[in-house]
Write a protein that binds this DNA or RNA. Structure first.
Length: 745
RNA sequence: GGGUUUGUAGCUCAGUUGGUUAGAGCGCUGCAUUCACAUUGCAGAGGUCCCUGGUUCGAUCCCAGGCAAGCCCACCA
């Protein structure tokens, strides 16, 4: 054995050893209890970050611990297509080539992103393997595998026949100039001066930058505690407008800032995100007054057909003439949303989207947690879940992006003349408009081939089909929300609905993930798991805290404070990094990257190495003197109190680790092991052994303590313990430490 | 602005179901060094447990208010 533990040399060797023995292959064994974890799939296109390291470390502890306890364990790896995030990354690549997504038809764009991701996904896979994670790679899945798409389509069909799917308006960031929607991340906010118009509005005066949306107003809101207006709340007011007098309800909603303007806000749910939300809270009608071409529609009466700014100008003039305009604040500075592509003003617009009714799904999902059928650790996170489930509203499952599972709905163009489509014509130019109009100048084939996006009216007729059902049909261009497909993850990775794996390994034992996706992911998996199988997909949920940067802020590229695990693994070893992170947090709270602990555990690995080296050297010495070391099991009762003491402490350790691990208290277990090995075994017992006359007995005890300790520590620091095991195991022991039995409490 | 969490040693974090001397790692100070390990050993210093009130025989822990910070969500008609 070398004088110093060399993780750089040892870790890859040990990793190969596990791989060659195929120790982590999940085996269906009716005589054993299954223990299953599904790895939350990292972005296939991403790189390993500290969160992944912590996640893999914790799950690996559980898997190795349970495996050594005799369970038939399975830990399933996979990667995520990460819809939106990846599409953005890909579009940045396009930008380098001076291209954008608008230069491609939908099918080509999808294929290109597919190739891009395929060429990158080996990176994250290799990085996860390098961590020593005991995953069964023969069961690897990708979130766009055929089996995933098939299951998602089946669920969608089932939901449709159960009456859970409907199409309704949903507010999106729409750019009338580009003729397309943008995600929140593709929106820039710029500060700009615009006139703020104060206008008479029934009994009120209110301030607005956008008088042209007045025709879409369906309520007026004030703050519920605003004394000036309290008496109006719940009543109807009569408003004199440019198109005559109309009636509106006054609502009280705390999103209104009483300090701003006059403290009264007009609510236009169709053209403002806040108003849309308020509209949903108060069940208000949604009245769209601006079309997808960026012009006022028929509801705007004489202003119909005008562009937004044109209409605004005219409306202000007319308001003034009618004496409805009180004053104009020309110096009003506010932030305006513009699209990243051309810096055009975003027009928040309601477009038909696909929704899932969540009431029938969320009730059993909420009950499962309340009844303790699914237990959440740490317990205080349960509140996040329960509150979210109680507040959860219907789920918009469609996304206006390409990179994802395309919704299997088809629109027959003859039934739906009002379909609005964007496509590349044969000259590569983007054309958009109503299909019935476009067909006058373009063939269906040209439109179909160059199709980029389509918007089907709310009441459009559609067919659900995996393949094109008949001629003259265009497929919905929206994709499913990633959480809709990843909500099936525990099912699809295990071969739902009919496979031996599924029957044996489902439901899984624990879902381990960062707390930040409890709302998005955990809740959806529970809902869909119960909906499809009648059982929640896991018994326990363990939520770890987020690893923050040294400045205690969230790591982000823009802050430049990202700590890259790939710098730490070569320097300190995967064992030390894993263990450092695990002991950095005890209760699931976020924590700053504990570099000190990583160093401490690097030193610890070396300490362990030298403890066993000492043991082996002493044995050599004894042998050279012709003295035998007895087997521990053959020792008579003549051991000393110091021996008994260390044996007792070992068994105390075993039970405290067992207790801590079964409550997911990883750092407590880790620290106890550290304290025992370093301060009890090394500092006291080994120092004592040096002076013992009966070294044969002492070394026998030491050997036993070391071997048992390696087993206890193995789930936490698998590499160094396995490497030491090679040297200190006895003839009758398993060749691999991971195949040994975990000490029983 | 809304929600939520946190505030314990120089730093990163445990802990206290309220009760004598509040813990770990790192850092710091002093000593040791052919003895498995300097990625070492031994000894030690260092804390009004954020502030102010309340409950209590007793509060760092429970309650209220304040201050500060982090995170999530909105970014304002």
């Amino acid at each position: 054995m070398e004088k110093q533990y060399n993780h750089r040399e040892v870790e890859p060797k040990i990793n190969d050893k596990w791989k060659n023995h195929d120790v982590f292959k999940g085996i269906i064994d009716p005589d054993k209890k299954p223990y299953t974890i599904i790895l939350p799939p990292p972005n296939a296109n991403g790189r390993l970050h500290m969160g992944h390291v912590l996640m893999c470390a914790i799950e690996d502890v559980l898997i190795r611990w349970k495996k050594m306890q005799g369970y038939s364990t399975l830990w399933v790896p996979g990667t995520d297509h990460a819809g939106f995030e990846t599409q953005i990354v890909y579009e940045k690549e396009l930008k380098k080539k001076d291209k954008s997504r608008f230069d491609y038809d939908r099918n080509t764009l999808y294929r290109n992103i597919w190739d891009f991701v395929q060429s990158n996904k080996h990176i994250i896979e290799e990085q996860i393997r390098g961590m020593g994670s005991g995953l069964d790679w023969s069961r690897y899945s990708f979130t766009l595998d055929d089996k995933v798409i098939k299951t998602v389509y089946d669920t969608f069909s089932k939901m449709i026949s159960d009456g859970l799917v409907y199409r309704d308006d949903y507010i999106v960031n729409y750019c009338p100039k580009c003729g397309t929607t943008f995600s929140d991340l593709e929106i820039d906010h710029i500060t700009r001066k615009d006139p703020l118009y104060y206008m008479k509005y029934g009994p009120f005066i209110l301030a607005t930058v956008r008088p042209e949306t007045k025709f879409g107003d369906t309520a007026v809101a004030v703050h519920p505690n605003d004394k000036r207006y309290k008496e109006y709340i719940g009543k109807e007011i009569e408003v004199e407008g440019l198109l005559g007098t109309f009636k509106l309800k006054v609502i009280g909603d705390s999103f209104v800032d009483p300090e701003f303007g006059t403290g009264v806000v007009k609510i236009t749910p169709a053209h403002d995100k806040n108003d849309y939300e308020a509209g949903r809270r108060h069940n208000l009608e949604i009245k769209s007054v601006i079309g997808l071409d960026g012009r006022m529609n028929d509801l705007a009466g004489p202003y119909a057909g005008m562009k937004i700014m044109e209409a605004r100008k005219k409306i202000v003039e007319d308001l003034n003439k009618k004496g409805l305009l009180v004053k104009i604040d020309e110096n009003y500075e506010h932030s305006v949303a513009v699209c990243y592509r051309g810096k055009h003003d975003i027009e928040p617009t309601v477009l038909p989207n696909w929704f899932v009714k969540v009431d029938p799904l969320k009730k059993p999902a909420l009950e499962a947690v309340k009844r303790g059928e699914v237990k959440i650790y740490p317990k205080w996170q349960e509140i996040t879940y329960i509150r979210w489930m109680e507040e959860m509203r219907d789920w918009p499952i469609s996304r206006q992006i390409v990179w994802g599972i395309r919704i299997p709905a088809w629109y027959n163009i003859n039934d739906n003349p009002d379909l609005i489509v964007n496509f590349l014509d044969k000259n590569g130019k983007v054309v958009f408009g109503k299909i019935s109009e476009l067909l006058k100048n373009y063939s269906f084939e040209e439109i179909e081939k160059g199709l980029q996006t389509l918007v089907a009216p709310k009441d459009a007729r559609y067919l659900i089909s995996e393949k094109k059902p008949k001629e003259y049909c265009l497929q919905e261009t929206d994709t499913f929300d990633t959480w809709f497909s990843s909500g099936h993850w525990p099912l699809v990775t295990l071969g739902y609905p009919a496979s031996d794996d599924f029957r044996y390994f489902y439901p899984t034992s624990v879902l381990e993930t960062g707390w930040e996706i409890i709302r998005f992911w955990v809740s959806r998996m529970i809902m869909l798991g119960i909906y499809l199988t009648g059982k929640p997909p896991f018994k326990d949920v363990y939520l770890h805290g987020l690893v923050r940067a040294f400045d205690n802020k969230k790591m982000s590229k823009s802050l430049g404070n990202v700590i890259d695990p790939l710098e730490f693994i070569p320097e300190y070893g995967a064992d030390a990094l894993r263990m450092g992170l695990i002991s950095g947090t005890a209760n699931g709270k976020d924590f700053a990257f504990p570099k000190d602990k990583v160093i401490a555990f690097r030193n610890f690995a070396n300490k362990l190495w030298n403890m066993s080296r000492f043991y082996l050297l002493m044995i050599e010495e004894m042998k050279s003197k012709g003295r035998d070391i007895k087997k521990y099991s053959d020792l008579d009762k003549n051991i000393l109190n110091t021996d008994r003491d260390i044996i007792n402490k070992l068994s105390e350790l075993i039970s405290s680790v067992d207790k801590a691990l079964s409550k997911y208290r990883f750092s407590e277990a880790a620290d106890n092991i550290y304290q025992f090995l370093w301060h009890e075994v090394a500092d006291r017992y080994i120092e004592d052994v040096k002076n013992r006359e009966d070294k044969d007995i002492a070394l026998s005890v030491l050997g036993y303590v070391l071997r048992e300790s390696m087993k206890i520590l193995h789930p936490f620091m698998p590499f160094v313990t396995e490497a030491i095991w090679e040297n200190i195991r006895e003839e009758s022991d398993s060749e691999l430490l991971i195949l040994e039995n975990y000490p029983r409490a």
